[in-house]
Design a protein around this nucleic acid. Structure first.
Lengths: 225, 225
DNA sequence: CGCTTAATTGATCAGGGTCAATCGTGGTGG
DNA sequence: CCACCACGATTGACCCTGATCAATTAAGCG
């Protein structure tokens, strides 16, 4: 368990109705977790770690990834508020996770939740839903990775990310170009070039590297087809 | 529901201890399914279909895939004996499935199983396990798709497939080159060239297009790293 | 105000896509 | 039984996209 994660307070002690508790009634996991804060770039867990904890994102963005022996990195998924990540079948992790931005998470004890799930079918159902959500995400990711063109991939990523973090037509990218590249199986240069090209085509505007104004969503959707 | 699937017999009526029932005791889904046979190349379900059925493979190989509007196909996964496929979150399927070879499957009614799962935690747990298995598979697939080289991808596929169907050092490929290509995000030609190169390098032998004799597994594993 | 790191842009190159021809094999029908 | 056909697989030639290498710009931050 990484030292850089600071335990803020037990979730059970939290009285304030914060965002992650917004749907209390439909959230059987509510009372069982511990809130932790993780600074930008910090490790949440690493390949080879024990799998006895898993997490739910309260705020911030998390990347889950795998490293190849030659140093390349494949980002499996970005996780945002409300999403659960970090459960695996085996005892030992095959993936690692880091905070893309400062994050607040709830950590759950796997064994504890499994015990709960045995008694309470609502917990079991919730767990299953989270697993399925992640599965659907991974399958969508496969589709993007299988796509031929770099522009297609970047467009696909933009549209997907826009669904999370668009505000008045402006998407805030929490992650670096390198993160995007590692997510899409491209190089940083290809990502940059695709974005520049979109801007030249008047499809997006880039007020700064982290802000994308969506000018012509349809054009992107045509690309993704 | 495709007409080409012929219902053989209710699973509950099956007395013979066939392979798919081998681990009866650990299989809470055992008594609830219907056995169907699907001929090679036949559709099992299509994008847009209802999700009220899901399946378990008794024998044969199934491909689960998605079609892009321009006709390209991304194969999400190949499923073999013992694997479960075809459950999705929504009411409507986002994926289609076809028989790569003649298949025997058990189909389960989603609603029925969900009712069971509410009463029997063992069923719920089993379902969760299957979902997680598919998740792990999809994540592994992402890793392969993200890889740079064609040879790396093909090597990775061969090693993965060998774990299912190797027999005395010979792997039988149930699928065509096109299937492999669509699974790996390559063209048929690139797959063929990679295999030919492996053969020239003495890493494999290709007695015929569907048989691969593994001569130097280590060399392949080095490629995949 | 420099220093550091991220991002963009340009030039070149190689891997894989594309197009096309050939080979091989299994199935069918004369 | 064999000839032919159809389809999958292989091989070759060429081209294009994206990787690589390198230089420049931009943006935080002490």
């Amino acid at each position: 368990m990484p030292a850089q994660m600071e335990i803020a307070t037990s979730a059970t002690a939290l009285k304030a109705r914060t965002a992650w508790m917004a749907d209390l009634d439909r959230e059987p996991l509510q009372m069982t977790g511990t809130v932790v804060h993780v600074g930008e770039g910090r490790e949440i867990f690493a390949e080879g770690d024990d799998t006895h904890l898993f997490y739910k994102v309260i705020s911030g963005v998390v990347r889950v990834c795998r490293f190849l022996s030659d140093g390349r990195r494949q980002i499996e998924a970005f996780h945002v508020e409300g999403e659960v990540f970090g459960f695996e079948l085996g005892e030992e992790r095959t993936l690692s996770a880091e905070a893309v931005s400062d994050c607040s998470l709830v950590s759950y004890r796997r064994g504890h939740i499994e015990t709960l799930a045995k008694k309470d079918q609502a917990v079991a159902h919730q767990l299953f839903q989270y697993a399925m959500k992640n599965l659907a995400q991974a399958q969508g990711h496969c589709l993007v990775l299988g796509r031929r063109g770099a522009a297609e991939k970047v467009a696909s990523f933009l549209l997907g990310w826009a669904q999370h973090s668009m505000e008045k037509g402006v998407v805030h990218l929490a992650m670096t170009r390198q993160d995007i590249a590692d997510y899409l199986g491209l190089t940083i240069e290809s990502v940059s070039r695709s974005l520049s090209q979109f801007e030249r085509d008047g499809v997006i505007a880039l007020p700064n590297a982290r802000q994308v104004r969506m000018l012509n969503t349809d054009a992107l959707e045509d690309l993704v087809a």
